[in-house]
Structure formats: C-alpha cells, structure tokens
C-alpha cells in the first residue's frame, strides 16, 4: 500500500502522517507517495481528509505524527512558501488569482522579475522579460491564454483556471498538486487540463490529482489512492479496477447491493455535483 513495487524513489512522501483537529482525528497513519513520471489520483468522499492531507503536504497545516519525506530527506514544512521553495506547486480550488491583474502579473505574482541594475534595486519590474518568459513557458506547455496583457476579469472562468494551472506548472520543479482543477471546466477545457497533466508527468514531474470526477480520474491517473475517514483504504490500478470499485472503496459500502447504481450516479454527475470542501 505504501509503494512496494519497483518504482522510482518517491519525490514527495507522507510516512505515517497523523493529524488531529482538537479531539477529532482527521488523518490516521497515512502513507502516500508521488513518484516521478506518474499521475497519482487522490480520491475520497467529502470529509475523507483529502484536503487535510494536501494541506499537510504543502505546509499549510502542521501534522501531529509521522513525517514528510522530500527527495529522500525528511523535511519540516511550516509554511506554503517553504513548500514552494522546494518546487512543490499547488493549484487551489478557488484559483487564488488576482482578477485585476493580467495573466503575466498573476503568473509572476510574488516572484516578479526586476530590471537589471539600479532600477531593479529600486523595485522596477522587467515587464518585457516576464511577458517573454510567460510566452515561452506557455508555448512549451501548449497552453493557450488569449491576451496575456488582459485583466483576468475579462477572461472566462476556464481561461482563468488555465492561468492558475499554467502558473503552478511553470514554477513546479518537483511536484504539482491539483485540487479539483477540472471542477469549473467545460469539456474542451477539461481535455486541455488533462493533457497538461500528462505533459507535466512526461517531463518527469509527478502530479497529484484530487478530484470527485471518476471519469476524469480514470482517464488520466496512473494510480488511484482512496482515502476514507482519514485512512488510506485502498490503492487501485485504473487499468484493472472499475469506477464501481473506486466508489465502493470511497464509501466503504462493499457489501451493499445498491452500490452499482450509486457508482453510476456519481460517474455521470460527478462533475460539480459532489464537489465539496473535504
């Protein structure tokens, strides 16, 4: 369950993580790994602990037991900045973009390039170089964002998400974590995001994909890890497992006969409908 196959060394690993919120046990002895060259999906019902685990892995929340291992070394992440400094980037469900700024400004937000020389020392921005690097990176990732100089308010929801995804991908040197990245998307844009995830994986950077949408998960994931009530209950191979299996593992209702119907319901309506704040 914690990666016994002959896989490459995990880039980011949770080893026996426990997390309490007061008396409530949110995570119990969680082992989770993201390896180079894979898309690992993290699925679970609302409240299963997906977001808690991600928050622990990205330095947003401290954990109570176990350790985080990054590139083979145990690390302590006490802030999201520390996680980002290691090359771990997250696309948040609520996007976390500044709508009044343009795409370039959002992509470089917090890491602005400054002009060389004394002007740069005074804080003057190198807007030309930021635009150029954004164009190059987006071109390399084959992400299309119309009007890089346009305020984000003038872009569609899908285009904004594209910028948020592109920002994470552009800066992630080690791991990309995507929390429901397809939730706001139409069919075409979802396809683009899934393609983007494959491209990132193919560059050797692991992608952690959190989603409620089983068809998306089964389309793109190399491995599926199921969380239930704060514990890893199963690891599935999407090539052999079915959506039914995944839903059974998520809900724990292995013996119920109605599971097939529920699985189909989730499969058909998964997008948006069961998106929660687990």
């Amino acid at each position: 369950m914690d990666g016994t196959r002959d896989d490459p060394e995990p880039v980011l690993q949770a080893v026996g993580i426990d997390k309490y919120f007061g008396p409530v046990r949110a995570l119990t002895n969680v082992h989770f790994a993201a390896r180079a060259g894979e898309i690992v999906a993290l699925i679970g019902d609302n409240g299963a602990g997906k977001s808690t685990l991600i928050n622990v892995l990205t330095g947003v929340l401290p954990h109570d037991g176990g350790e985080i291992v990054f590139d083979g070394r145990p690390v302590r992440l006490s802030s999201p900045q520390e996680a980002r400094a290691l090359g771990i980037e997250t696309v948040y469900q609520d996007l976390a973009i500044a709508p009044h700024l343009d795409a370039v400004a959002n992509i470089f937000l917090g890491r602005e390039l400054r002009l060389p020389g004394p002007l740069g020392a005074l804080g003057f921005l190198d807007r030309r170089r930021m635009l150029k690097e954004t164009e190059e990176q987006l071109g390399r990732l084959r992400v299309r964002v119309p009007g890089l100089g346009r305020r984000m308010t003038t872009l569609s929801g899908g285009q904004r998400q594209g910028v948020a995804v592109a920002r994470a991908v552009m800066w992630a040197s080690k791991v990309v974590i995507m929390d429901e990245p397809t939730a706001a998307f139409g069919v075409a844009q979802t396809g683009q995001v899934l393609d983007l995830m494959r491209q990132v994986r193919d560059t050797g950077i692991p992608v952690v994909f959190i989603s409620h949408n089983m068809p998306h998960v089964f389309e793109v994931a190399d491995r599926i890890v199921v969380l239930r009530l704060g514990e890893i209950v199963e690891e599935l191979d999407p090539k052999s497992a079915s959506i039914d299996d995944a839903v059974r593992a998520m809900t724990g209702s292995t013996r119920f006969t109605g599971v097939g119907i529920k699985a189909e319901f989730v499969a058909r309506t998964g997008e948006g409908r069961s998106v929660g704040n687990a």
């Binding site: 900045q81 400004a105 937000l109 917090g110």
Partner: peptide
C-alpha cells in the same frame, strides 16, 4: 494592486 484585488491570493504566493 494584488492585495486590493485578492489579498488571500497575495498571501498564498508569499
């Protein structure tokens, strides 16, 4: 501008 536009996003990028 970033803080006025979305202070939470500004915090998240450090």
């Amino acid at each position: 501008y970033a803080i006025g536009s979305n202070a939470a996003a500004a915090r998240r990028v450090g």
